[in-house]
Write a protein that binds this DNA or RNA. Structure first.
Lengths: 203, 203
DNA sequence: GAGCTTTCGCTACGACCCGTAGCGTAACTG
DNA sequence: CAGTTACGCTACGGGTCGTAGCGAAAGCTC
């Protein structure tokens, strides 16, 4: 998850785990107060109570640091078992929306995504530490729905990717671009659209 | 569209329209070569062949400049009339994906969106100059589909916003986060999902 | 404990970019 | 012509970057 040397040496003074947590927390705090562009590593170091050099020993730069700081926010996501596919979708989308409503997630996530368009290593870091880990939610929801008979037992792997892009993309666009809350009403309408399509929904 | 004084004065030396175009083109060029974070206004000025002070007289900062530079890319969007709602959607989504495939759109758009989470004026600038102008495509497509009898003649205004978030969000997430091309195959699958929903599509 | 290794906090540094001020010149109006 | 505004250029203080060097601290092995 971090950029330390692959095999941790058995000898010498070990790195402080407390410092790691303090730095990541300070990064999120700075994201809230300053946003991405005005966030400086020197400021983060001061907030965390560590030296600037300590920070540079662990992370290559601002991008990598913010990815790790933001990734922790998404670890709490779980898909609830509410008895129906529609209810399960609504539940997980609301959780996702709640995370994106937090300012440290908003500015941090979009900024590192922007940087990742020009940095393949960074994009891979984002994919493995944030994006790909949440696809399990789609897989789990589909498995449950198939067991209930709500979805055909087919299993095209590209369909999972499509659904993930649609769900995550819609929520992100709603909250970060349109800047409107993804509240219960919106989530219900979105879930209905996702399940029955434009033809079945109110046009 | 730019940050000049509201009423252009009748007296004095007029601002060079050539310089405007050169600066915006230079900004896109710099976005391609350097990306957002390494783009400097001094460099843009040099590329455009103007003085740095000239640039600061017209734009308040990097954010506003990039918004204008990127906004021009989206003006070419049109929804084609292909005879069916599905074909119309596929056509406009492919156009949208083609724009997002360009590096100057990728890094520029995401970066200003990230900044807009902490700057209300910037978000409003993005909404009026980029986002809101493309909602006409959804409205136009729906009107056509209703005339063809493909959609009920209802007209819930929030549905348009929902569809826009779903379409734009999915394409953006596919191209910028998943980093996979929104090619014809993907667009066809997405359109089918949008029209008939999860129940009708292959699960 | 002694000795080794690595991390830590601290200071200092050159390099770069920021955003603005000041100046003389260019372009356009009445 | 005078008046007004934009332009190119130079220069500046202020801030951040990322790194180097130092002595001290914190572990591990013997």
């Amino acid at each position: 998850m971090q950029s330390r040397t692959p095999a941790s040496r058995a000898t010498g003074r070990p790195r402080s785990a407390t410092a790691d947590a303090a730095i990541l927390a300070a990064t999120r705090e700075a994201l809230v107060e300053l946003g991405w562009s005005k966030l400086t590593l020197g400021d983060v170091a001061t907030r965390a109570g560590v030296a600037k050099t300590t920070l540079y020993r662990r992370w290559a730069g601002k991008n990598e640091l913010v990815v790790d700081a933001v990734a922790e926010l998404f670890d709490e996501l779980e898909i609830p078992n509410r008895g129906s596919l529609a209810a399960d979708i609504e539940g997980v989308v609301l959780q996702f929306a709640a995370i994106l409503a937090r300012p440290e997630a908003r500015s941090g996530l979009m900024a590192v995504l922007a940087e990742s368009t020009r940095d393949d290593a960074l994009r891979e870091r984002i994919r493995t530490s944030i994006v790909e880990r949440q696809k399990r939610l789609v897989l789990e929801g589909r498995t449950r729905a198939q067991a209930r008979g709500e979805l055909p037992p087919e299993s095209d792997p590209t369909t999972v990717d499509l659904i993930f892009d649609v769900v995550a993309g819609a929520v992100i666009h709603r909250t970060l671009v349109s800047a409107e809350p993804a509240d219960e009403q919106w989530v219900r309408a979105f879930t209905r659209l996702l399940l029955v399509g434009l033809g079945g929904a109110a046009g």
